[in-house]
Design a protein around this nucleic acid. Structure first.
Lengths: 256, 256
DNA sequence: CGCTTGGTTGACTAATCTCAATATGGGTGG
DNA sequence: CCACCCATATTGAGATTAGTCAACCAAGCG
């Protein structure tokens, strides 16, 4: 029954299409439609990828801002801390997603970014991306789109935190993860949570006990199975019904 | 005592410095440090300002995205709606702030934007701003900064919605408004709320009754006076104490 | 000058948090 | 390789907060 889940990493159903020679930035490169020439310019700017171990900080709030980072593999959380130690997880980030966009405004990172499993990122020195954007309009445009997408994502989190009940938040959260896994070629209804109940709670504006209880209730309803961090969506439809109506744009393939 | 408050608009302490000939975009122009030549290029791109009456929509979610808008005068709210009619106010916006950045990602506006009083905006056709940015690097950079700032703002709203109690939310809200008024040359401790209790509640993730009760309690404590929409901060320090610790970056001069 | 809308207040209910006890698993060091 | 320990998760009971429903009031508008 309990297969050796210790390193039961989510299994890709099909291999990811990688378009950018230097690193698998589907999100960054694919939609732009760069020429071979432009692609190599981009490759020249993208720094060697960096590996992080579980628990390691990619950057910390307050550090000078130099680069944004694209997740190649692994899983990250970002959080803003408050003086008295409360901390709010502002998002979870997986492959193809960009980290550090909030640092541009003040030339300093605005949040902490921490690897939740061993991970690999590409560093994109921002000023070089800016100048490259001037030469390659489609790249510039795509960068604006990525930033805008982050704003859209944040709006849907606000909707979640401002309007939804605990069950709805959890359902939206699970379905969002499911969607993002599946667009990356992983199983949609069978995955491993990379984060703790407390981190989920922080993100969803709930206490860890509430997260735990709500997951148990979902399981009791026969909607999901929970085995520690291993989640299976048995009746995703039931979850979808729960949030039908509150959706807004909770259903994004992008970061959350 | 109660002066004819009907049109008691907030009074500027000093006149705003206007740097851009076409429209008062302090936020957009001042920090960039454009040359006279560049400034006139920018002026050429910025469309004639548009006037809106109270209650009018600047744009609606789903409409094709063409431009972002800079608030010249007046007051706006943005909200994302959900299918079943719930709506979440995602922000309030005053002079110098940009609206519509969330539309870039999908080429369609992602929220409604509604004037809360008679207002005036400048329209900035986005594609022309993009190409102008290619010619004027500092403008491009500034645009990235503005988008990043929006992301930072959203993070602080998440912190507010995820971590704070009703009293703390209201205190943070009032102090944020106060700060923004004062940086625009209006009185910091004496202002008119442009939005209803319900809209405040929607933004803060509270019901209107809770907003009302909490304001009453603040007044009973002697911290503020409330006369309908006219608010005076009598002991701003008391409010600051309330949120000391949860701040994160709740104290921004920018939109909220 | 009545009517409609928005705001206040109260009593009650429901949801979530808090505190606490108990399990469980994974990691560590012997 | 095993035993132990600590961090993490589950569950329960009771406290607290905010939501709900409802009555009432005041203001602004036509």
């Amino acid at each position: 029954m309990r297969n050796t889940m210790v390193e039961h990493t989510n299994i890709p159903i099909h291999t990811l299409k990688v378009s950018c020679s230097n690193c698998s930035l589907r999100e960054l490169c694919l939609p732009v439609g760069l020429s071979r020439e432009e692609m190599s310019q981009l490759d020249a700017v993208i720094r060697q990828s960096r590996r992080l171990k579980r628990g390691e900080y990619l950057f910390r709030a307050g550090e000078p801002f130099k680069s944004v980072f694209a997740v190649r593999t692994g899983f990250f959380k970002t959080c803003v801390g408050s003086h008295d130690g409360r901390e709010q997880v502002t998002g979870f980030h997986m492959s193809g997603e960009l980290l550090g966009l909030d640092g541009i405004s003040a030339n300093a990172h605005g949040c902490d970014s921490i690897a939740l499993e061993d991970s690999e990122v590409c560093e994109l020195p921002f000023s070089r991306m800016e100048s490259l954007g001037r030469d390659i309009p489609s790249l510039q445009h795509h960068f604006f789109r990525l930033m805008s997408r982050e704003i859209v994502r944040d709006q849907s989190v606000m909707l979640l935190l401002g309007n939804m009940k605990a069950e709805e938040r959890l359902a939206a959260f699970l379905l969002n993860l499911s969607l993002r896994f599946s667009t990356r070629g992983f199983a949609a209804n069978d995955f491993i949570l990379r984060m703790s109940r407390e981190e989920i709670g922080s993100f969803l504006g709930l206490k860890l006990e509430t997260v735990s209880r709500t997951l148990s209730r979902f399981q009791a309803n026969g909607w999901i199975t929970v085995e520690h961090k291993h989640i299976q969506l048995v009746q995703p439809t039931a979850l979808k019904e729960l949030i039908s109506g509150c959706s807004g744009n909770t259903q994004q393939t992008h970061a959350m």
